[in-house]
Design a protein around this nucleic acid. Structure first.
Lengths: 116, 116
DNA sequence: TTAATACATAAGCACATTATTATCTATCAA
DNA sequence: TTGATAGATAATAATGTGCTTATGTATTAA
């Protein structure tokens, strides 16, 4: 079960700190409606692969995102089972859509859209 | 005018980072409904005065809070004129009330409740 | 005027965070 | 198999953050 309210001020601060990085915030906003793999993030943010992986690890450790392996790719999405899902969703509501970045990727033919 | 939506991902991340510290988040939640002065924060968080002042400065620089001098005290409150007021308010909705901390202060007779 | 209280700010240090580089595993395609 | 691609992780370097200490200003009370 997830409610919008957070039980402790420390936990709330921890989640806000995680979202308080522009790369992570943008990634989380992006996977609100899309499933993305690591190499897509690398292209979108012009960042190194380890840098992206480390951001994702923090989000995964906090159980805000979940991963799904599909062949050689690992796809990330928002963890809807998280206790904090609604809290995060409430914040994302006020954050500008990042879907343009994905469209840009598609235009370059770099979007990973594998079967199934 | 303030809307819940933030124009840029960078600005949103900046605000979330500011709120992503448990002392600052608690202070902001506290002054959602109360006006507090620096020395009260010092008592409440058992922190040094410069430490509290530095937190408040960051919040003030981002225009999330405003100050009001009253004699020797400086009282802080949420800046309702801020462009980001509703965004902050939306987050605070999910954050547990910190009013108990003020009640505790009153019990100890340390609450500054000056005239007017 | 003097002392005390409230607060701000600057400098320095300790610790946390982020990015890079290097290396390792897993999957897929030849 | 072998090579290439995707990704994770460890070690390290660069940067940022938050705290303490020291000091300055403003206000009040003596």
């Amino acid at each position: 079960m997830s409610t919008k309210s957070i039980d402790s001020i420390e936990k709330a601060a921890q989640i806000l700190k995680l979202l308080g990085d522009k790369t992570r915030l943008s990634m989380v906003k992006l996977i609100e409606n899309n499933e993305c793999c690591v190499c897509e993030f690398v292209d979108i943010y012009q960042a190194s692969q380890p840098s992206i992986s480390q951001h994702l690890r923090k989000l995964r450790d906090a159980e805000l995102v979940k991963e799904r392996r599909k062949g050689q790719w690992v796809f990330y999405s928002l963890n809807k089972e998280s206790q904090y899902y609604e809290f995060v969703l409430g914040i994302l509501e006020s954050v500008p859509s990042q879907d343009e970045r994905l469209k840009e990727l598609e235009k370059q033919g770099l979007r990973i859209s594998c079967c199934e």
